[in-house]
Design a protein around this nucleic acid. Structure first.
Lengths: 229, 229
DNA sequence: AAAAAAATTAATCAAATGATTAAAATTGTT
DNA sequence: AACAATTTTAATCATTTGATTAATTTTTTT
């Protein structure tokens, strides 16, 4: 009505729009394969504006990558530092959080992995994550010292948690191309995994307990390899 | 002694040497980021030889990628079709095989994932894998129908197997940069996982049995979320 | 040894691409 | 409205890069 244009179009500055366009193109094609002209086209603005707002393609990439990394890494620290949730609840929250995030942004893990592979030490500058030992580590140590016989080092378990959560998104294109797993089927599967992964982790830990304490005896005689080497 | 030069240098043709150099550079930097000049330098030959032996950068890449894909995918089919090994033994063999392969060639998974992301339908042409239902699928169905209460669809378990095996190699650069996990520590860890991953899979399956058949009751009252939704 | 074929190199080309510039359009200020 | 500052554009530049060409060297054939 008035001369103030309140379209959503006008609400975000062109600088932000270019950055968002850059994010889309960079995540889709990677740094080397994206041309500044791609970003210009995706944003709908003139090529020169990219250098006008951001000094160079590399500077723009650094900004986008840093933001994505921050989002990926720091978005979970509140979960990991929550003193009101149990260890198990944190596992579940973490898995749900990441599956939701990656369902929205499936190309993100690959984008990040790519950057890490190409420029590993760039991480150190882009992420200032002085791992201040989040509360989840305290909880883990409590469980270790108290009753359960968990492994001292949670590295394996954390890797598994992340692997089972993130890897499917990395493998999704292959699953689609080779196994005919379409988008909705995949999303269903990931929805299932929100509850399955914490269960699996639980079973890993329980198995570990059983092995070390001999509280529980093997049920099936055919079970193999269920002993420490 | 004689004028026949038997150096290892001379045993492989320059065509092969260029292809190997290309493999190294492509896997390290990805298709878009590698310049033909990089390959020339890595091989030690003149730039023009790349186009002399392989018509173009893309043709060379196709050859390298196809070979790597074939290696990655087809190298396990003998294992999966082995009629003399049990299902559990196949899991173990698969994990060991891939960890060995990726320890030798750590950049391989990322390289493949990259290609799949950029050009998903290219897989169909590069890999002629008319999945002829390897013997492991027969064995799985046997276990399903016989005694165990395994999930009909082994998709989740197979994904987990691959995820826990492959993902660490993808995350390795991050682990090194951020967690200070050095090469030998990492290799040790992966050596441990050769036996751990089959155990974990076993525990997942056992947990599944317990849930479905109620043969076993929950030991710890604090166990949460161990029920079908 | 001479001729032919194959392999290799230096020089060069043409297209792509990141970046810049100068002008035009828009917005803000007085 | 007039002026200034900011934003946007079209045109252009300089470098990079995949590819080619013509000449040179090496190997093979006769």
């Amino acid at each position: 009505m008035s001369e103030h244009n309140t379209n959503k179009e006008e609400l975000t500055s062109t600088e932000v729009k270019i950055k968002e366009a850059a994010k889309r193109v960079f995540t889709r094609k990677g740094y080397a394969a994206t041309r500044t002209r791609d970003i210009a086209e995706e944003s709908g603005f003139n090529l020169a504006l990219i250098n006008y707002y951001f000094r160079s393609k590399e500077k723009l990439f650094d900004i986008v990558m840093t933001e994505q990394l921050q989002m990926f890494v720091f978005s979970v620290t509140p979960l990991l530092n929550d003193t009101t949730t149990t260890l198990r609840e944190k596992f579940h929250a973490l898995v749900t959080h990441y599956i939701d995030m990656l369902t929205e942004n499936p190309a993100l893990p690959f984008f990040i992995m790519n950057e890490i592979n190409v420029n590993p030490q760039g991480l150190l500058t882009k992420i200032r994550m002085n791992i201040q030992f989040p509360y989840i580590m305290v909880q883990w140590q409590e469980e270790v010292t108290n009753n359960k016989n968990l492994p001292e080092n949670p590295m394996h378990i954390f890797i598994n948690l992340l692997a089972m959560t993130v890897f499917p998104f990395i493998a999704a294109p292959m699953m689609r191309a080779k196994l005919g797993v379409e988008q909705d089927i995949f999303n269903n599967m990931m929805e299932e995994r929100k509850t399955l992964i914490p269960q699996w982790i639980e079973q890993m830990l329980a198995g570990n307990t059983a092995i070390n304490t001999d509280e529980k005896e093997t049920k099936t005689g055919t079970q193999k390899g269920n002993h420490k080497k």
